[in-house]
Design a protein around this nucleic acid. Structure first.
Lengths: 171, 171
DNA sequence: TTTAATTCCTACCAACTTAGTCGGTATTAT
DNA sequence: ATAATACCGACTAAGTTGGTAGGAATTAAA
């Protein structure tokens, strides 16, 4: 019934992985960091852990970290545009950190890959009551969301790529 | 062509609202609190702001807060199961807080409606390396996620329904 | 006792997001 | 030349979000 072929395809493989991860209960995905941020961060830690100044090709990152090379490509391209890494094309090419690892915070990486860490959209620009409230200035929850936002940012800004790469090398 | 009827239906109305909210750029929805948490919290603030001990029917909450009654129903049912509110059925029925508003934290409410605030799933139970790493104990990012988790929780636990209801009444 | 207001319950749905895949092009060291 | 690599845009299955729809059960009040 053409089943074997379709099961072999990449799309089907993905769906298998999804199913096995799904628990019985109805889980929400809010306040979560997605694979973009997690995988991208792992890739950067991997690069930072290699000899400094050396080109690290995607295929080697993908292999060491067990990630899809094609998916990583998307993420690295975004990180390059944002100035976090630079790339060298052609054979023996790859990616290099664009700054010292202690100058790159986890917060910056996640902001590039996931967008700003606002817990609600209202925080993104002044006076846009997307919550349906009459006005943002009379919103009683806004101060709480602002506190949450700055708290999250503080934690993510306090950790640099150097910190994580050091820990990675020690294992 | 049957177009007018389908446009009038609720499904079509919803899609209109979605489109107007979508900006040009590609926004991610990670690390965000969804409508479940935001609407549910607003509903509870609304109840807490009414005369204490009085039954507050969903229709009045929905009207005052500009929310869908049917959607609120889902949320309140979950909050009831979790022991945050209790309900009175029949005419003149409605919902009442199950505890004093100062005993109900925003953290509890969001946990009920959105699930636990783990930024990554690995934190949910011991040693489940859902990230693909060899083992959770060698994961260099886990301590960071744990710090993030407790930071988020601290903020949300430090704010009670009473705090928000008071602010709400002052406006 | 009827009626209206209300909670409760299950199913359903369109739009959107996520987590990738696929195929091809451009560039460059060897 | 060739092989390795980055770069690019289109595509996609599965899952999630933000609700609707329709009815059943319960109860205060007329």
């Amino acid at each position: 019934m053409g089943l074997s072929l379709s099961v072999i395809s990449g799309y089907a493989l993905k769906s298998q992985r999804r199913k096995e991860a799904a628990p019985g209960t109805t889980w929400r995905k809010n306040m979560k960091i997605s694979t973009r941020g997690r995988y991208g961060l792992r890739a950067l830690i991997d690069i930072a852990a290699q000899e400094i100044g050396s080109c690290v090709p995607l295929c080697s990152i993908a292999q060491r970290q067990g990630l899809s090379e094609a998916y990583l490509e998307q993420l690295m391209s975004q990180l390059k545009k944002a100035g976090v890494v630079k790339s060298v094309r052609g054979a023996q090419g790859g990616y290099i950190l664009n700054r010292a690892p202690e100058e790159i915070s986890v917060g910056e990486i996640l902001r590039v890959l996931e967008g700003p860490m606002y817990p609600v959209d209202c925080l993104s620009d002044t006076e846009k009551p997307s919550c349906g409230a009459a006005s943002c200035s009379t919103c009683v929850t806004k101060p709480l969301w602002e506190k949450l936002y700055s708290s999250v940012n503080d934690v993510l800004e306090s950790c640099s790529l150097k910190d994580l790469a050091n820990a990675y090398l020690e294992i």
